[in-house]
Amino acid sequence: MPLLSVKGLTTTFRTDRGVLTAVDDVSFDLEAGETLAIVGESGSGKSVTALSLMRLIAQPAGRIAQGEVIFEGQDLLKLSEPEMQSVRGDRIAMIFQEPMTSLNPALTLGVQVGEPMVLHRGSTWSNAIARAGDLLDRVRLPDARARVNAYPHQFSGGQRQRAMIAMALACQPQLIIADEPTTALDVTVQAQILALLKELAREQGTALILITHDLGIVARYADRVAVMYGGRIVETASARNLYRTPRHPYTSGLLASIPRLDQVTGRRLIPIDGQPPDLARMPPGCAFRPRCPRATPECDTTRPALTEAAPGHWKACLNDV
């Protein structure tokens, strides 16, 4: 049994432009200890998928309309809010893009990193703060134990993100969901933080859902990849297979459009024409149809289902790529 099994997850938002389906019938499994990257551009539904798993969708405008999120055999969508609170930060932890908005500026790092252990493990505050010092040391925050009583503004962006990782690790969760955890950081710091996250997850056997738009990061850290477009998963496979033989025209288009450090210089980039879809005006058939070089008349009317094109390699495309 997989650690996490998402089935038919659908999340909608009521807006002044009508009801938008931000996540549309999304299904995937995640094994214990596995790293899954969810890749997509803005509006693809990758972040809303993460927030839906944690049941952090802003109500009443947002609503998880359908689906199941089976985590360790239990459907999280059926839990009461207090039951869900006991899952968050304990068995599933989340790391956000901007640590300054996720950290409380009025509380010391030690209190914030220690809090999950008080909440979920019944630890005393003094023990929790001492353990917070250990955790901050483990994420290689300089002078960690001496700085548990310092406040977030006294740390740099990269150090705050280390503290967020320490907080996420506090209760040794089975799953960490990291939503663009390094997008706001400099390149050299990005590499440090992601390497650290991956190393600690591996040590603890923690599964990781890494949400990103960066195909380089995916190639470096992910075991498996799900590519999202217009609220749906359009392709999913092992990282190796996805990059070697992309089977959805959007995936192959993305790979051809990005400049690489190792490519032959002077080669022209091959862009994907047009723009990402407007969720308020989704075409009836395939969402990628207006930009697809291989579209057929059938793509106008039929919404392709995710089907297994090769063992473990799924794509939502009517044509063979």
């Binding site: 590499a191 195909l215 380089g216 470096r220 990059y243 070697r244 690489r260 450090l261 190792d262």
Partner: peptide, 27 residues
């Protein structure tokens, strides 16, 4: 050299064999 090593190349086969030397600390 550190900047270039920090940038991941969108190819898992290359990344699997490429050394990921990272510099420590921040600017």
């Amino acid at each position: 050299q550190a900047l270039l090593a920090a940038v991941a190349i969108p190819d898992p086969d290359i990344e699997a064999t490429r050394p990921h030397i990272t510099v420590t600390g921040e600017v």
